[in-house]
Design a protein around this nucleic acid. Structure first.
Length: 311
DNA sequence: TACTCGTGGGA
DNA sequence: TTCCCAAGAGT
């Protein structure tokens, strides 16, 4: 219980620095406004947090919830998933998007079973060495599941800090050294408090300090927010690249994989897959890409299916 | 660094 | 309708 950081149950310290006051206010707000999500249950295990974090990558909470519940019921431990085929994981992933995440989650489960006795590691470096686990997810799992002290810089936290501290509407395209230094300076010294700050600042970004139409009238730190004080100036950075989808390989891959999911565990003839997309060249490229990624596999002559053989 | 990699819903 | 983007990772 340090007095420097994290006072969720007390009023703001008038002598606190702007940074500690920001942390304190957000922690208080979180205590009263946190969503009741399954991966936040008290005493939650590392596997539950890991699965939720991978599913939540670039994917809204509301779409993750049903898939997460079914996944954890079926595979409550890493070794349970590792014992099933990767195709089952891809199938259970459903339409969450970015299905390579399902494959990598399966690979991570195998690695955890083989290298860590089936226990999700608490160490950041061990986590980051797992397939599909990058800086954010490693820090998040270590922090949320094990109470470790880490800078957890996701898009929500970056936006909250860009606005409150830097006075900018949106963070840049990639994390800068200055950004990380600022987040490190703000991180409470006490590990448990640091972990709460991580999830609390993310929640503020998700519920109040949103990318579009931020709800500043509900914000606990609006009085300390540099962006709000400056009159909420519009982003002056380079225009974000438009995210096209129609006609891309991603769309073709999605269509092909949807057919193979529906057919699983059966294989599908190439001429049936051809009905997904009329441009043969692009269709072949997408199909070959899926095979190269391990999301599907050839099954006999001109047949394809989800990977059904456990490695 | 910049780009690829799904999907669906809100503004 | 179109646009934007939602707890990123890998190359």
């Amino acid at each position: 219980m340090t007095a420097r950081h994290g006072r969720p149950d007390s009023s703001p310290d008038p002598e606190a620095t702007p940074g500690t006051r920001l942390v304190s206010q957000v922690l208080q707000w979180y205590a009263a406004n946190a969503r009741d999500l399954p991966w936040r249950a008290p005493g939650i295990d590392g596997w539950s947090v890991l699965v939720s974090e991978v599913m939540l990558q670039q994917t809204p909470v509301v779409r993750v919830l049903p898939v997460y519940q079914a996944w954890m019921t079926r595979w409550p431990t890493p070794d349970a998933l590792a014992a099933d085929s990767p195709g089952e994981a891809v199938l259970a992933w459903g339409r969450l998007g970015y299905p390579r995440r399902a494959l990598r989650l399966h690979q991570a489960a195998v690695a955890i079973t083989e290298r860590h006795d089936g226990v999700v590691p608490a160490d950041y470096d061990a986590l980051k060495a797992l397939p599909g686990i990058g800086d954010y997810t490693a820090a998040a799992v270590a922090s949320f599941a094990y109470g470790r002290r880490h800078v957890v810089l996701d898009t929500n936290v970056r936006r909250v800090l860009a606005r409150t501290v830097d006075g900018r509407e949106l963070p840049g395209t990639s994390i800068t050294a200055a950004e990380r230094a600022m987040a490190t300076a703000l991180l409470p010294a006490d590990p448990a408090t640091a972990a709460r700050w991580a999830v609390a600042s993310m929640e503020l970004g998700a519920l109040v300090c949103t990318a579009r139409s931020p709800r500043c009238e509900l914000c606990p730190v609006v009085a300390d927010c540099a962006w709000h004080a400056a009159g909420r100036p519009a982003d002056d950075g380079p225009p974000r690249k438009a995210q096209t989808y129609a006609g891309t390989d991603r769309q073709v891959r999605g269509r092909l994989l949807a057919v193979l999911r529906d057919a699983f565990p059966d294989a599908v003839p190439a001429d049936v897959l051809a009905t997904c997309w009329d441009q043969a060249e692009q269709r072949e490229r997408a199909l070959n890409g899926l095979v190269a990624d391990g999301l599907i596999e050839a099954a006999g002559d001109e047949m394809f299916r989800l990977p059904g053989v456990t490695p």
